[in-house]
Lab assay of single mutants.
Amino acid sequence: KKYKVVEVKENKDGTVELVVENENGEKKKITLSKEELDKLKAGDTVELK
Score class of each variant (00 low, 15 high):
Lys49Glu: 15
Lys9Asp: 02
Lys27Asn: 03
Ser33Phe: 14
Lys34Ile: 13
Asp38Glu: 10
Gly14Tyr: 01
Lys27Cys: 12
Lys12Ser: 11
Val16Gln: 02
Lys29Gly: 06
Asp38Tyr: 13
Gly25Trp: 01
Gly43Trp: 05
Glu47Gly: 03
Glu35Asp: 13
Glu17Val: 11
Leu48Ser: 05
Gly25Ser: 03
Val19Tyr: 06
Asn11Met: 10
Leu37Lys: 14
Val8Thr: 06
Lys2Cys: 15
Lys29Thr: 14
Val6Ile: 10
Lys49Gly: 15
Lys34Val: 08
Asp44Ala: 05
Lys1Cys: 15
Glu36Pro: 12
Asp44Ser: 06
Glu10Ile: 05
Glu26Arg: 05
Asn24Val: 10
Lys39Tyr: 08
Glu47Phe: 07
Lys28Pro: 00
Thr45Trp: 15
Glu23Gly: 05
Ser33Asn: 10
Asn11Arg: 07
Asn22Leu: 06
Lys2Pro: 04
Ile30Tyr: 14
Glu26Gln: 08
Glu7Gly: 08
Glu17Asp: 10
Asn22Met: 08
Leu48Pro: 07
Glu10Leu: 08
Glu26Asn: 04
Glu23Cys: 11
Asn22Ser: 13
Lys1Ile: 12
Lys9Asn: 09
Val19Thr: 10
Asn22Phe: 06
Thr15His: 04
Glu35Tyr: 14
Asp13Ser: 02
Asp44Trp: 01
Asp38Asn: 13
Thr15Cys: 09
Lys12Asn: 12
Lys1Leu: 12
Glu23Met: 07
Lys27Tyr: 13
Lys34Ser: 11
Glu23Tyr: 08
Ile30Arg: 01
Glu23Asn: 04
Glu23His: 06
Lys12Val: 09
Glu26Val: 09
Ile30Trp: 14
Thr45Asp: 14
Lys41Phe: 04
Glu7Val: 11
Lys34Cys: 11
Lys41Ser: 07
Lys41Pro: 04
Glu36Cys: 14
Glu47Cys: 14
Lys41His: 05
Val20His: 01
Leu40Phe: 15
Ala42Thr: 08
Leu32Val: 08
Lys28Leu: 15
Gly25Ile: 00
Val5Phe: 03
Gly14Ile: 00
Val5Ile: 14
Lys1Ala: 09
Tyr3Ile: 01
Val46Gly: 09
Gly25Glu: 02
Val46Ala: 02
Glu36His: 15
Gly14Asp: 02
Asn24Gln: 11
Leu32Met: 11
Lys12Gly: 13
Lys12Arg: 10
Thr31Asn: 06
Lys9Trp: 12
Lys49His: 15
Val8His: 03
Gly25Asn: 04
Lys29Leu: 11
Lys12Pro: 12
Lys39Phe: 08
Glu21Met: 08
Leu32Ser: 03
Asp44Gly: 09
Thr31Arg: 08
Asp13Pro: 01
Glu10Lys: 05
Tyr3Gly: 00
Val19Cys: 10
Tyr3Lys: 00
Gly14Val: 00
Val16Thr: 05
Glu36Asp: 11
Lys2Thr: 09
Asp38Lys: 11
Tyr3Trp: 10
Lys49Asp: 15
Val46Asn: 06
Glu36Trp: 15
Glu36Asn: 14
Lys34Pro: 05
Glu21Asp: 02
Ala42Met: 12
Val16Arg: 07
Val19Trp: 11
Lys28Trp: 15
Lys27Met: 13
Glu47Gln: 06
Lys9Ser: 08
Glu17Lys: 02
Val6Trp: 10
Lys28Met: 14
Gly43Met: 04
Ile30Met: 12
Tyr3Phe: 06
Lys4Ser: 03
Leu40Cys: 09
Val5His: 01
Asn11Phe: 09
Val16Glu: 00
Lys49Val: 15
Asn22Arg: 04
Asn22Val: 07
Gly43Asp: 06
Val5Arg: 00
Leu40Met: 07
Lys49Tyr: 02
Val8Ile: 11
Glu21Lys: 05
Asp13Glu: 03
Lys41Thr: 05
Leu18Glu: 00
Val46Asp: 12
Val46His: 04
Leu37Gln: 07
Gly14Arg: 02
Glu36Ala: 11
Asp44Val: 05
Lys4Cys: 15
Asn11Ile: 06
Asn11Ala: 07
Tyr3Ala: 01
Glu21Arg: 05
Ala42Trp: 03
Glu21Leu: 08
Asp13Asn: 09
Thr45Ala: 02
Lys29Asn: 10
Glu23Thr: 07
Leu18Ser: 00
Val8Glu: 04
Val5Thr: 01
Gly14Met: 02
